[in-house]
Write a protein that binds this DNA or RNA. Structure first.
Length: 455
RNA sequence: GUGAGUAUAGCUCAGCUGGUUAGAGCAUCAGAUUGUGGUUCUGAGGGUCGUGGGUUCGAAUCCCAUUACUCACCCCA
């Protein structure tokens, strides 16, 4: 080999047929669940105008947006002296006007604003598409990954927030993944920031206490101090961070602590309401109120949701929350939305790690017909179309290769059933049906074949 | 953006403090087996040791640079 080995860009992946069938299994369950609750699919383009994307994800987020170079002679309009003297940021604004989508929520907000006259509110949509982030990849983090979002926009009702929790509960149970569903409220966090006397530091506070699980209380306090909180504020924060007990107990205690904060009290009430609705909808794995849950995106204003795998430090599998004014930025104020996003790739990783996929994911070939050539192959071709009419994924081996080779092919592709029609079978109008898993083989006719392989 | 590690066959890796023609397992292909895979046996193909430079009689091995990847931090699905 004397050519440069080809490779994909870092943080991106190829998906093999086996992987795709498994990924589709995840997508199917997510879609089905979304649709059970009345969410309908939309898609938006891979690229958006930078004006749509920039400023929505904070300073860090802006840096992580993949920019697309303008087509044509993108450098022509620029003064050479400008190239030398101005920052790369400024220049990039001149040579790039589009970027790859960073998440699905902001494009959705854009979609809603643009199509507001065609949409009936409340609008429930889901969207399963890749997003791109120019991050440094690492475990469970990719530069191209799929998000599966469900959002309701144009409804203030907390039933929607509860519905998201219930859907998350259902999806992870269907997938057989053990998770902890966590709930918080941005309003409670705001209330906390108010009563400790640092309403302006809410982001710093939330980012720091979000790490509690990971780095421990001492480090969190250190970081809070570094971020400019005085000691009295930090000590006021301690009883709040350390709240324990049931959700009810936590909420009761919070009521006492946040009496002086109107917004804090509202958050407590709303959270109690969301939990009540979720319970009435029959949620199985009860969400846990977790005040250290903050989530990065700045646009959440109410409920905050996160789902983590019970074991495995792979980060969150799903996250979401309520945003009161996302469409406001695009000129449609006063529309509240709430939504949740599932990270398909992390879900895949964890299912793979724990062997949670069913043995045969649909999409794979179900039956292979062995090719003997001649008249036998005519019988096989007819049988194959019969099976396909019954919606059974069927392959006829295209060459009359050695039987051994054909069987090895079936084995390799993990095809569960193999049918043999040779000279003898052709004469008696039968076939040999072999179960590749057990090795059992029996004589069958068309009807028996259909019956056996569909049970 | 910051820090650390790795780079040898399609994949996973071995190759000791530098010493002839670079190894294994798995995978692939062929045969043992002309109607039977997942077990066994035999054989074959496949590598300018990431790239460029340096030290040396001699470099996969030591040094420098560079690129790519991995892991962690920041941040996040």
């Amino acid at each position: 080999m004397n050519y440069q080995k080809p490779s994909q860009p870092k943080g991106t992946r190829d998906f093999s047929p086996v992987e795709m069938n498994r990924r589709n299994y995840i997508f199917r369950i997510i879609k089905e669940t979304f649709e059970l609750y009345g969410y309908q699919p939309i898609e938006t383009p891979a690229m958006e105008n930078l004006t749509t994307l920039l400023g929505k994800y904070g300073e860090e987020g802006d840096k992580l947006i993949f920019r697309i170079l303008n087509s044509g002679d993108f450098i022509s309009g620029i003064d050479p002296s400008e190239l030398l003297n101005s920052s790369s940021q400024k220049i990039s604004g001149k040579i790039s006007e589009k970027g790859l989508r960073y998440d699905l929520t902001v494009p959705f907000a854009r979609y809603v604003v643009q199509h507001r006259n065609e949409i009936t509110f409340p609008f429930k949509r889901y969207q399963l598409q890749p997003v791109w982030r120019a991050d440094r990849p690492q475990k469970g983090r990719y530069r191209e990954f799929y998000q599966c979002d469900a959002d309701v926009i144009g409804s203030d009702s907390l039933i929607n927030d509860a519905e998201l929790l219930v859907m998350a509960d259902q999806i992870f149970r269907k997938l057989n993944i053990g998770v902890a569903i966590k709930l918080n409220s941005r309003k409670i966090l705001t209330g906390i920031a108010e009563i400790i006397g640092h309403p302006d530091k809410i982001i710093d506070i939330t980012v720091s206490i979000d790490k509690l699980d990971k780095i421990g209380i001492d480090k969190v306090n250190e970081e809070l101090a570094e971020r400019g909180l005085d000691q009295s504020a930090i000590s006021k924060l301690q009883p709040i961070i350390n709240l324990s007990g049931s959700n009810e107990q936590k909420l009761d205690r919070l009521k006492e602590l946040l009496t002086s904060s109107e917004i804090g009290k509202a958050g407590i009430e709303e959270t109690a309401e969301v939990l009540k609705f979720a319970e009435q909808m029959g949620i199985v794995d009860k969400p846990e109120l977790d005040l250290t849950l903050a989530r990065g995106l700045n646009y959440y204003t109410g409920t905050i949701i996160e789902v983590k795998a019970t074991e495995a430090g792979i980060g969150s599998l799903s996250g979401g929350g309520r945003y009161d004014n996302l469409t406001g930025i695009f000129g449609l104020p006063g529309v509240s939305g709430t939504g949740i996003s599932f990270g398909a790739d992390r879900i895949y990783d964890i299912m793979n790690e724990k062997n949670l996929f069913p043995e045969h994911t649909s999409g794979a070939t179900h039956v292979l017909l062995i090719n003997f050539g001649g008249n036998e192959s005519i019988a096989c071709l007819k049988l194959a179309s019969f099976l396909r009419e019954h919606n059974i994924n069927t392959e006829f081996y295209p060459e009359d290769a050695k039987i051994k080779k054909q069987f090895a092919y079936a084995d390799n592709k993990q095809i569960p059933w193999v049918v043999i029609i040779g000279e003898n079978e052709l004469a008696t109008n039968t076939m040999q049906l072999k179960n590749m898993h057990t090795g059992e083989q029996k004589t069958a006719d068309q009807q028996l074949l259909l019956q056996i392989i569909t049970e």
